[in-house]
């Protein structure tokens, strides 16, 4: 039954890939890729249990971290067209700190 769960998650990943391809706006694609990453974390864990090697969970932890960082990096790049800008809102500078 664990293998069936893995297959179901892979099916969901394929559907998300279709959304990534046809997504009308850029943000749909980013959202689909982020959700794809969460599903990849779960699929890696399930794959470890199906193969009887729960050490795959280490890779899943690493992928969860990388997924978050990559989403933020993509959004930052599309907002400022550069990775060099600090992530502070321009109108949030008033007040003492973080408005």
């Amino acid at each position: 039954m664990t293998a069936a769960a893995l297959i179901a998650i892979l099916l969901g990943m394929i559907l998300l890939l279709i959304r990534t391809l046809i997504g009308p706006t850029l943000y749909d694609r980013v959202l689909a890729v982020n959700s794809f990453g969460t599903k990849t974390v779960l699929a890696l864990g399930l794959l470890g249990f199906v193969m009887g090697r729960p050490e795959f969970l280490d890779i899943a932890i690493l992928y969860a971290m990388i997924n978050f960082v990559s989403t933020i990096a993509i959004l930052k790049f599309f907002r400022y067209r550069s990775f060099q800008v600090p992530l502070v809102r321009r109108d949030a500078q008033r007040g003492k700190r973080n408005g």
Binding site: T2, A4, A5, L6, I9, L11, G12, L16, L31
Partner: peptide, 25 residues
């Protein structure tokens, strides 16, 4: 445990169906 895994995977697929169906971002 495997039944819960299957249920969670079905929930994931339901979420994906929602991503495909809903009208805007």
């Amino acid at each position: 445990g495997s039944a819960l895994c299957l249920a969670g995977a079905i929930l994931c697929v339901i979420g994906t169906i929602g991503v495909m169906r809903f009208p805007d971002f």
